[in-house]
């Protein structure tokens, strides 16, 4: 029976996960560079000009992926937080805190590019539109999480307190989104309707998806390399970190 049972917890110990993450980071970094390169080329040279917004609409190729990534990373963090609380595995809590800065960066980027797109199209830098407002609230949630983690010294309590905050936050995201939607909406209908046909040109859609996958593998690379830093910091007392440091010293680091 045991052989068929995949040992899910093989990589849940930091010691075994650290080298695995080390091997994965270069793959994801190069994946990101490649995908973003192709995506940028497509978005500037291949995608046709928009009939209404002319060239300005090209900002969509970074605005929408950033917004998607900020929400997606928050959900991934919530997933890791739940696993961390249920299985009490330290590594999943480390993954949660390693994703937070990247998610906050994407939320800020979504706001920045949204404002830069709003200026020519709607005339002002900041518009109290439903999506921009809920993105701003999402950024506050990220900052709240990072502030809570940094103000708790004991890592064990920090992990579990952060996990609870994220889970409470995740329940609130749909409520916040619809209450802001109810409150006011200026944003044009979502151009990408998963159900119906998208009101967008084929090439534009492909470019945006490539850019999204580029950002996705970028987020993976940064999260994995940050989790390695966190592991080193948290596990400094362990023997395998000492050996690692000796090896590092041997290489004249």
């Amino acid at each position: 029976m045991h052989s068929r049972l995949i040992n899910w917890f093989k990589f849940s110990s930091p010691a075994t996960f650290y080298p695995l993450a080390g091997r994965l980071v270069p793959w994801f970094t190069w994946g990101a560079v490649l995908l973003l390169g192709v995506g940028l080329y497509l978005s500037f040279f291949v995608a046709p000009t928009d009939y209404k917004q002319g060239e300005g609409y090209r900002i969509i190729f970074i605005h929408v992926p950033a917004a998607w990534m900020s929400m997606f990373l928050y959900l991934v963090m919530a997933g890791w937080a739940a696993i961390g609380l249920v299985f009490n595995t330290r590594l999943s809590a480390m993954m949660t805190s390693s994703l937070a800065p990247t998610g906050a960066m994407f939320a800020f980027l979504a706001l920045w590019t949204g404002a830069f797109w709003g200026k020519p199209m709607w005339g002002t830098w900041w518009v109290w539109d439903a999506r921009l407002t809920s993105e701003l609230i999402l950024l506050f949630l990220y900052i709240g999480f990072i502030a809570l983690k940094s103000s708790i010294d004991d890592p064990r309590r920090g992990d579990r307190a952060g996990a609870i905050l994220i889970l409470v936050g995740v329940i609130n995201i749909p409520i916040i989104y619809y209450s802001v939607q109810w409150w006011n909406t200026l944003h044009q209908g979502s151009t990408i309707k998963m159900s119906g046909e998208t009101s967008m040109d084929e090439v534009m859609l492909i470019t945006m998806l490539i850019m999204t996958f580029g950002c996705w593998s970028y987020a993976f690379a940064t999260a994995l390399s940050r989790v390695r830093c966190i592991i080193l910091e948290r596990e400094r007392g362990t023997t395998w970190v000492q050996e690692l440091i000796e090896k590092e010293e041997g290489r004249g680091a």
Partner: peptide, 12 residues
Amino acid sequence: MGGYGLYVWGSF
């Protein structure tokens, strides 16, 4: 960028 240079290059 068709007059939108500041905005496109600002965001990218």
